[in-house]
Computed example of a mutant assay.
Amino acid sequence: MNTTDTVPAGYAIGYLENVDMGPHIVEYLERIEGTFEPYGGRWLVHTTRHQTHEGKLPGDVIIIGFPSVDAAREWFASEPYQQIAPLRADHADSIVITIEGVPEGYRATDTAAKMRKQLKAG
C-alpha cells in the first residue's frame, strides 16, 4: 500500500504535573471517555509510570489515539470536552497538544534521503 493512501493517526498528548487529586479530577476522569468516544478516541497511555532515560520529566504523560489528527482536534475543540477541560486545567499544571502520527510504512531513512538531497542542492 502506498503511504499516501492512508490517513495517519492523530494523538492528543497531555503532560500533567502537580495534580490536585480531589473531586474535580475525579469528575474529569468520570466524564472524559464519553467526550472522545464519538471521535474514535481510545486510551493509549493513562496513569502509567514512566522511566526517564534522558532529561527530566517529573509529571505524567497521557496519550489518546484518534483515527486522524483532524478527529483529535475536533475532539479537543468540542463543546463536551471544553465543558470539562477546566476540571483538569484548574487543578493541574498541564500541557495538551494534538499531533499527527506518521503514515503506515514511514521510514526515517526516506526522510534522511530527502534531507540529504536538499543539502546537496544548496
Rank of each mutant, 00 (worst) to 15 (best):
Y39N: 02
E37V: 14
N2S: 15
G122V: 05
P103M: 00
T98H: 12
D93N: 15
P80Q: 07
I62W: 07
G14Y: 12
I95L: 15
E74M: 05
G10L: 01
T111L: 06
A77S: 11
A113W: 08
K56E: 11
F66V: 05
Y81Q: 08
G14E: 04
Q51I: 12
E37L: 11
F76M: 14
I25H: 00
E104F: 05
A92H: 08
R116I: 13
H50I: 14
I13K: 05
S78D: 09
E30C: 10
E27L: 02
G41M: 08
L57E: 13
P58F: 09
Y28A: 00
G59K: 02
L57N: 05
H91G: 10
A71F: 00
D90K: 08
G101H: 00
L87M: 03
K56L: 12
H50G: 15
V26R: 11
E104T: 15
D5N: 13
R49P: 10
H53N: 06
I97Y: 10
S94R: 14
V102W: 04
M115R: 12
Y106C: 04
V61E: 01
L119Q: 12
T35H: 01
T98M: 12
I84D: 06
Y28P: 09
Q83D: 14
I99R: 11
S94C: 15
P67S: 05
P58S: 11
T6E: 10
H24E: 14
L29G: 10
N18F: 06
D5Y: 12
E54N: 04
I99E: 05
G14F: 09
P80L: 02
Q82W: 03
F36N: 00
A113R: 07
D60T: 15
P38D: 08
D110V: 03
A85F: 13
I84V: 13
G40W: 01
R73L: 02
H24C: 09
G105K: 01
L87F: 08
D60S: 14
G14N: 10
R42H: 06
K114W: 10
L57R: 14
A12Q: 07
G10Q: 06
E104K: 13
V26D: 06
W43Y: 14
V7M: 03
E33R: 09
T109R: 09
T4W: 08
V19R: 11
P23D: 06
A89I: 15
Y11A: 01
G41E: 00
G122H: 07
I63R: 02
P58G: 13
